[in-house]
Amino acid sequence: MSATPMSTALADPRDRGGPAQPMLIARGLRRYFRLKGRGQAVRAVDDVSFTVFKGETLGVVGESGCGKSTLARLLLHLLVPQAGEMVFDGDLVGAARGIGIAALRQQVQMVFQDSAASLNPRMPVRDSIAFGPLAAGQSRAAARQTAEALLQQVGLRPDLFGPRYPHELSGGQKQRVNIARALALGPRMVILDEAVSALDKSVEAQVLNLLRDLKRRLNLTYLFISHDLNVVRYISERVLVMYLGQVVELGPATAVFAAPRHPYTRALLASRLSMDADRRTLEPPLQGDPPSPIDAPSGCRFRTRCPCAEAVCASRAPPLGHWEDRASHIAACHMATQGSGHTLAGAG
């Protein structure tokens, strides 16, 4: 596991396995929540595996209750996974000879959706940004310098905005502060959990541009969680679609958006609004709400809303398929698997 010499000028001394080694591998992550008083469990994240490559943006798409926020918290060990393992840049997370949780959190950081709730209302934003470096043992002066440099980087003048309290900032400015806070420990990977969803459209564009700009300059890797397909398509190289705690489709963004292989992905894409008043959607692509993850359907979890569901979908859960490399495009649907028993198998 010696450091591989790299040709790029951006070589990061912390980069251990070189650019080909994935930044993060998650295997079989699982987290159920037991419901009080009842014998049931919410299967929030159920056997989720994926790989994040260095320098890419992996978009995670899904509706409320699909487990995408739980997944984000599992990756940072804010919630402890009940099964599964994670490998960060070649090191097994939490293992004796691997990388510890504290070290992982130095390298992976998170930006939350609610820009207001994720800042301490009683702290000037400069102190919120400096909190991480201080906790990591930086001196007060150094932490403050870090904070001011970061404010500058996210486009907020440090002298004007540093001393302000969160309520004195607009939503977009607060989210910039949250991004600066996430960057304060110099992470290599940032998890963005619906980071632009609550913003006005024009502010969303500003923050997306900022995120792209920071990624280029700081050589970051993003896990971008969102329910907005337009945003995910714009910012991601690869996309992972989740439904009721499971991965239903995974592949390069262009392939997934051009030729979705799972009927749920197709429905999600068709549910996008058109921006053209002359071409309105006349029939909703899906009926009903996403079912509750408490008692998820047997077999394929999407079958209750799927227009193509057959008997085989109720009896057997479709496998996600074999994932080889970053160009692989796989879907957990019997129709995508030859010889699965579905009449449309292999056709779509």
């Binding site: 459209k201 024009s202 969303e204 564009a205 500003q206 997306l208 541009n209 792209r212 700009d213 907005d228 337009n230 945003v231 398509r233 714009y234 910012i235 963004a253 921006m275």
Partner: peptide, 16 residues
């Protein structure tokens, strides 16, 4: 122009 909708992924979105 700044609403994210089918923009080319390799370009900045025009902002206000």
């Amino acid at each position: 122009a700044s609403t994210v909708h089918d923009q080319a992924p390799d370009q900045d979105i025009p902002t206000i």
